[in-house]
Design a protein around this nucleic acid. Sequence first.
DNA 1: GTGAGTATAAAACGAATGTTTTACTCCTGC
DNA 2: GCAGGAGTAAAACATTCGTTTTATACTCAC
Lengths: 222, 222
Amino acid sequence: MTEGPAHQSAESDTTRERLLESAERLFAERGYDATSVREITQAAHCNVASVNYHFGGKDNLYLQVFQRRLDALRRIRTGRLEQALEEAGDDADVELVLSTFTASFMEPLIDESEGRLIMELMAREMLDPHLPRHVLFETMIDPVRRSLASALRQVAPGLDQVSAELCVHSIVGQLVHVIHHARLRHGPDAPSWPAEELERMARHITRFSTAGVLAVAGGDGR
Amino acid sequence: MTEGPAHQSAESDTTRERLLESAERLFAERGYDATSVREITQAAHCNVASVNYHFGGKDNLYLQVFQRRLDALRRIRTGRLEQALEEAGDDADVELVLSTFTASFMEPLIDESEGRLIMELMAREMLDPHLPRHVLFETMIDPVRRSLASALRQVAPGLDQVSAELCVHSIVGQLVHVIHHARLRHGPDAPSWPAEELERMARHITRFSTAGVLAVAGGDGR
DNA sequence: GTGAGTATAAAACGAATGTTTTACTCCTGC
DNA sequence: GCAGGAGTAAAACATTCGTTTTATACTCAC
């Protein structure tokens, strides 16, 4: 009576999995330092010592939270681009690349909370690193940047490597800004964000950046 | 001998001012939670109790660090835009607005460390708020956004209010991304960042965004 | 000179942190 | 039946945190 054994969604999972889920949510909402091991274990309905038993410490639990999601997220980002370029063949253009990338970037923010949390975690980690220096870059940021730069150069032949990287910066900067903006508008603990607003942002960023890339690729006159 | 009375730059200032400077630097480097009152007072060469004596607490010290800089920074951002529009008169165009705003946004990152620190602080505060909700928005973000949106609509008459705000989002997103990118490249404790690299970024963002704004303002065909 | 007020310093306080120790309950293999 | 490992829980651990208290110089008005 006093202890409901299965009245919550993920109650039947392993303690280890419950810890990962609670930690992911709390780290994303409050950051590494502001989240205590006691809060995590309380949310996971288990003892304080569980974190050290299953993960060896708070820092390694934080690392495992990232490693569980990063590979899948990187494959989505890079895979969608390659797939779209392949399907379009010779019809591929800058707008296709940008709408595809923008969509793959924003999808996790809409449909499921899983992806939104790892985006929040990455944004925090960029500003306040608590992971080994290479983790985020080697398994996520650098491959995605290279993938987008390569795709842009395929559809905009006038784009040299340096300009392509600058355009990647402009596009990613706009998209990351969406995350910050959406959190400030709807709060950090909202389960998901309104799809129509995000889609309006996606259409704008695609249009804005398509013109930007073409201008940079085509020299001053076009 | 053991106590150098004036061997440091700001040694002769008041304890209150030394606290503000140490706090600004440490909060910018490590964030609010990761910076302890003891670290701040040690860096300011004074006692732990000084923070509570002069500011009433860590949270109010943090607030005062912001209030000391925000007004000046807002005036730079908005003032430069009005000044440039006034001087150019009828020759004002989108590129002028964007190069002016980009320059005013990036200048604090180059010439002096004072401005760079408040930029870092604002970036952290956006992700992990520790100020009263309204401070950052009412005295900084909203006025600057309105100023840039207004300037854009003056030089791009086809731009409606909603599209102008979306363009502001795109431009600010790129510029904020520069700060994050520069810190990751050159470390959070670098006194300033290489001017030539920032100027290259500024030129790119201006060109990229000019084309973006014109495309959004001009409808699909132009 | 003296007392009120200001500024600084040293020490102590209670609370919260991550981690470790210890004990208890299962379950499994034999 | 029982040794032994895995999982969990309660308690204690040492540290660190922001803050408060107490005491000590210094200044200036009277």
